[in-house]
């Protein structure tokens, strides 16, 4: 990675950088167009109703988004995803801080946590189905069993690797207990927590879909599975397209928040990395 020295950031360099960015965007859009073109062409080539082209799928997605499916399926799905994500975030950060900071807690839980996080969580869907029945609570519960781990592990690893000078200074200044955790440890590990949260949001979305396919009574996953079973094939493609956009929106929104909230630590840690 080339590090641009501040003295070199003259006018010409800035303009060249802008031009390079514009070129990259143009290339990226070209790539997107190429991908869409390949989809359209291959569906025309196959000529089967099982593989509708991009254009009918996209227009169908638009009809779905403006129709009753939006409030019946999409909004409940988003709510479940966010609820599961929020519970996972709180759980993951608080347990991660404890197991990261206290050696005994870490060692006692290591075996159990190792096993539980290796467990492919969709296997728990049948259990959640018997516990919560069909519907929203089941989906949220399954999301929590999956999305907690990336947050927990990132938080614990970062807390474990805390700078001893930072810890000692805070201790010498008399910070203890919750104040110490929330004002010293939490800010120091927040970059990794965010990295974990970003993984967790996409995990939440993915798990939400399987849970809804298997045991939803509403939701976008239910919609896609239903469309497939009733051979409304364009509908199920449209559903996937909508989910693709949703995932992208969550991810971009997340990067934006991260950029804002962590603006203070850019330049103070890690050195000349500009993401």
């Amino acid at each position: 990675m080339s590090v641009v020295q501040p003295t070199l950031r003259a006018h010409g360099t800035a303009r060249r950088a802008l031009r390079a960015r514009l070129r990259n965007w143009a290339l990226g859009l070209l790539g997107l167009a190429a991908a869409v073109g390949v989809w359209q062409l291959s569906s025309g080539f196959v000529g089967s109703t099982l593989m509708p082209g991009f254009a009918p799928s996209a227009s169908d997605a638009w009809t779905i988004l403006t129709g009753p499916v939006l409030s019946q399926d999409l909004i409940p799905s988003i709510e479940r995803t966010l609820a599961g994500f929020a519970i996972s975030a709180v759980l993951g950060v608080s347990v991660g801080l404890i197991t990261g900071y206290y050696r005994a807690a870490r060692e006692w839980t290591a075996g159990v946590f190792d096993f539980l996080r290796s467990l492919p969580t969709p296997l728990l869907i049948p259990v959640a189905l018997t516990l919560f029945g069909l519907g929203g609570n089941m989906v949220v519960a399954v999301i929590v069993t999956a999305a907690t781990w990336p947050v927990l592990i990132n938080t614990a690893n970062a807390t474990r690797a805390l700078d001893p000078t930072l810890v000692d200074t805070a201790r010498a200044l008399g910070l203890r207990g919750p104040a110490f955790m929330s004002r010293v440890v939490l800010p120091a590990v927040s970059p990794q927590i965010f990295a974990g949260l970003r993984v967790a949001i996409s995990v939440s979305l993915a798990v939400m879909v399987v849970a809804e396919i298997l045991g939803g009574s509403s939701g976008i996953g239910y919609f896609i599975a239903n469309a497939q079973q009733s051979f409304a094939i364009t509908d199920s493609y449209a559903g996937v397209l909508i989910l693709c956009l949703l995932g992208w929106a969550f991810d971009s929104f997340f990067l934006l928040i991260e950029h804002r909230l962590l603006a203070w630590q850019r330049g103070t840690v890690g050195g000349g990395q500009h993401v």
Binding site: L27, G28, G31, V209, I220, I224, G247, D251
Partner: peptide, 17 residues
């Protein structure tokens, strides 16, 4: 640059859908 946008759209796609 050519693949960047496609990759960014595909990565968070819940493939289980």
């Amino acid at each position: 640059a050519f693949t960047e946008i496609v990759v960014r759209m595909m990565r968070p796609l819940p493939s289980l859908a």
